[in-house]
Amino acid sequence: MTSLSILDLAPVPQGGTPRDALLRSLDLAQHAEGWGYTRFWVAEHHNMIGIASAATSVVVGFLAGGTRTIRVGAGGIMLPNHSPLVIAEQFGTLDALYPGRIDLGMGRAPGTDQMTMRALRRNPTAADTFPQDVLEVQALLGPDRPDQRIRAVPGTGSQVPLWILGSSLYGAQLAGMLGLPYAFASHFAPELLLPALSTYRERFEPSAQLQKPHAMVGVPVVAAETDAEAKRLFTSTQQSFTHMFRGTRGLLPPPIDDIETYWSPSEKVQVRGMLGRAIVGGPETVRRGLRTLIAETGADELMVASAIFDHGARLRSYEILSGLDVAAMAQPAFC
């Protein structure tokens, strides 16, 4: 059975503020809890005026404090930006406050540009030690050992579930070797989705946390009452990706009637490549798209990312999605 979760980047809409974005994220999380979503994640991005989740652990605490049962976490923490001890302390604290509800997904990308990397005091070679850093976080959140001289307080013994995030084969190999659940970022990097899932399953070794592979697939989904309405809402995302290629990142723009007049032919190819797994349409169109994706990937979990300008339309999109009975859709058996 495939479960549904949400990756929310706390998008800041044109005419709005980061506060607006964070309050909307909380409102979405509260609705998602009622609609039966499994988890609600936010991600670490820096120096991007259109994303309000840079202080990721703070946002996780805000969301967990405003909900009761849904799992809340990072999708993810860009671990090379941080000391493993600090991350263990932060997420150990979150787990102490909201026991059994916190997830820690970790990636090795900077989540920003080269200049901001320097402002973060990140060593350019920090990503090289990502596997060792993951193991350090794992040890700090694991059981207390008699000879242990450094402890995460809170944190030690909390066993916060760890995830490996990735958009290439590197993360798939590491997640398999460590026996951790794996989340693939096909919501913006779909090209290697199937090879990465195959690699993860082939390399998987059971661990104390996980006895069999658990693969999560990130996917952009925009659902509305009709295909035409959903396609119009999706133009906000298409414009945002076009801005990225133009080097003009900004706030989330409102939808437009004709995206073809907005982008150049080359920009269209680039954006469509990054959003190649997007599922956009009315309920039946989205149902067919999800069924095909699940059959193709055998995903244990879908993590939906939807940047929709109007908050009411965003809520409705996730409400429609929650009613499609994704859990009952056919899923092939994978080893």
Rank of each mutant, 00 (worst) to 15 (best):
I87N: 11
L162I: 13
A29L: 05
G273D: 09
F309P: 01
A52I: 06
T261L: 12
Y200Q: 04
P213C: 10
A333N: 11
L79P: 03
P154A: 05
A307T: 12
P13Y: 01
L26Y: 00
G157S: 11
V153S: 07
T237H: 02
A64C: 04
G65S: 03
D257T: 14
D300W: 05
F62C: 09
A175Y: 03
P154T: 07
L293G: 00
E191T: 13
A126C: 04
E301A: 03
L194F: 08
P255R: 00
D27F: 03
T125E: 14
L120G: 01
T17A: 06
G36K: 09
L7T: 03
V221D: 00
S53E: 06
G166W: 04
N47L: 09
S264G: 09
T237N: 01
I150A: 05
V271A: 00
D27H: 07
E205L: 15
S240K: 09
R151L: 11
A228M: 10
T125R: 14
A208M: 14
M48W: 13
R287F: 05
T67I: 06
E319H: 15
W263Y: 13
L197A: 06
Y182R: 08
L251F: 02
D27V: 05
V286I: 03
T156V: 04
M115T: 15
A139V: 07
G107Q: 03
S266D: 13
Q270G: 08
N47S: 13
S236M: 02
V134E: 00
V137E: 01
T261N: 11
L197V: 06
E225F: 12
A189S: 11
L174K: 01
H45D: 08
P220W: 04
M115V: 15
G100A: 06
F204L: 07
P206R: 14
D144L: 15
L94T: 06
V286F: 00
V12L: 02
M244P: 02
H82G: 02
G250H: 04
Q14R: 12
M115H: 15
D20W: 10
V86D: 11
F91L: 09
H311C: 11
G247L: 02
H187P: 02
L165E: 03
F234V: 04
F130A: 02
P124K: 10
